[in-house]
Amino acid sequence: MRAIELFAGAGGLGMGISEAGFKPARIVEWDRWCCDTIRENRAAGVASVAKWPKPIEGDIRDIDFSGFEGKMELVSGGPPCQPFSLGGKHRAHDDERDMWSEAVRVVREVRPKAFVFENVKGLTRASFATYLSYIVHQLSHPEIKRRRGEDWSDHMARLERHHTSGAHRTDGLEYNVVYRVLNAADYGVPQRRERVVFVGFRNDLGIEWAFPRETHSLDALLWEQCHSGDYWDRHKVAKRHRPDLRLHRRGLSLLEAPAELPWRTVRDAIGDLPDPERDPIAAARRHNHRFQPGARSYVGHTGSPLDEPAKTLKAGVHGVPGGENMLCYPDGSVRYFTVRESARLQTFPDSYRMHGSWSECMRQLGNAVPVKLAKVVAENVARHLREAA
């Protein structure tokens, strides 16, 4: 099955989709550093990207996709999310970085069997509710284009009238669209990272679809930590070094082991890596695994505890936000995650090298989709497309 990847970033979403069995025919990304990262790993033969086409480095608004009409099973991507990010300025449709209209244009030109788009959880805030509905209506009816000079709210009204008229059921390009906020930790990613994911199937395929069920849970982790002790045994943590969990009400209230797998923690993800501060020579043998000085804890920025999934890694508006990108040891000391550790928290393989300075690499990772989360969704989409063929 063939795919087109838009707004590829550092490659997380595209890698997960490739691992699910899709073969990208075109990769588009405007950021030079992200393109350098993809080019470097492609040239190095890293699995999942080795057979990718060369990324097109440029503005998507200048690229014509009509030559792919009817030839692609999937279009995917993460339209720039700054207009909706909790760390941004919340300008939404007034922000020139809002690329949702371009994502819809590509769907209109390519007419894929399905699409997968993702964005930040902030898009689902109450203040953006009307615009979120506008996005869903555009994705559902991509041929109802916005007219020159037409305000987005007027376009929204036309889309609503078209949707309720019934005419769309027999004529034109239409997609059945669902969206949901997914917590990556619920699917085996060692990070509490919530993203809103949009999935649409072309209406003529008659596909019925729902998001994959969660496979991991906090309660399963608490059972292993508070009851069975399996978590501490697995990491060979002596009883005298284990935290006192006798006051953990949720953990102690559990009466039996949950059916799900436990949430993966920071220790699960990076516990086998050499400490970059205490053993810099061994750490230097790993790609992108160098100690970064200057970390400090302050109110609201206390780092990610070692024995929980990491907090959401963030790109930051003005440099790297230290509180979200720090490791917090059980004794309360903190340090910045290395690029390699951050890549593991985003489930990139160790062979994947990030290109650029520490802050630039962390920006790329802060904007990325966890590879594992992308793969889980894409595998489910791929299975339904095969069954409908």
Rank of each mutant, 00 (worst) to 15 (best):
363 R>L: 15
63 I>W: 06
143 E>D: 13
43 A>Q: 02
239 K>P: 04
97 R>C: 10
366 G>F: 09
143 E>R: 09
126 A>Y: 07
23 K>I: 11
212 P>Q: 15
309 P>S: 13
65 F>L: 14
260 E>A: 12
316 G>E: 01
249 R>L: 11
45 G>V: 02
362 M>T: 10
117 F>A: 05
66 S>W: 06
36 D>S: 09
182 L>C: 06
377 V>W: 00
132 L>V: 11
22 F>Q: 05
339 V>T: 15
313 L>T: 09
109 E>M: 13
338 T>C: 11
1 M>H: 04
48 S>H: 07
210 A>W: 03
149 G>N: 04
329 Y>A: 13
35 C>A: 08
226 C>F: 03
134 Y>C: 09
198 F>I: 14
382 A>M: 07
252 L>E: 13
126 A>E: 14
14 G>W: 01
298 Y>D: 10
26 R>D: 02
225 Q>A: 00
248 H>Y: 04
231 Y>E: 02
39 R>Q: 05
235 H>C: 03
182 L>E: 07
93 H>D: 01
272 D>M: 13
89 K>L: 13
198 F>G: 03
190 P>C: 14
42 R>F: 11
43 A>H: 02
251 G>I: 06
217 S>R: 03
340 R>Q: 14
90 H>F: 10
346 Q>K: 10
157 A>Q: 13
135 I>H: 02
142 P>K: 07
230 D>M: 07
363 R>A: 13
233 D>A: 13
85 S>D: 01
86 L>K: 09
27 I>G: 11
42 R>A: 03
61 R>L: 14
115 F>W: 04
288 N>H: 07
347 T>S: 07
311 K>S: 11
115 F>S: 05
374 A>L: 12
178 V>H: 12
69 E>M: 03
337 F>K: 05
321 P>K: 04
138 Q>V: 10
141 H>W: 12
386 R>D: 04
162 H>Q: 02
200 G>E: 09
86 L>T: 08
186 D>M: 01
181 V>D: 03
225 Q>M: 11
257 A>F: 01
119 N>H: 02
228 S>E: 02
238 A>C: 00
275 D>F: 12
283 A>I: 04
121 K>W: 02
378 A>M: 09
59 D>T: 08
185 A>M: 11
128 F>C: 07
58 G>T: 06
182 L>R: 07
192 R>T: 14
264 R>E: 11
136 V>I: 10
30 W>Y: 15
291 F>Q: 00
255 L>M: 08
341 E>L: 09
215 T>S: 15
223 W>P: 03
6 L>P: 00
146 R>C: 15
387 E>W: 07
39 R>Y: 03
342 S>F: 09
4 I>D: 08
380 N>Q: 07
84 F>T: 07
206 G>M: 09
203 N>I: 02
128 F>D: 00
258 P>G: 12
6 L>V: 03
361 C>F: 00
31 D>I: 15
182 L>F: 05
246 R>V: 10
220 A>M: 03
225 Q>W: 01
137 H>F: 12
158 R>L: 12
335 R>Q: 10
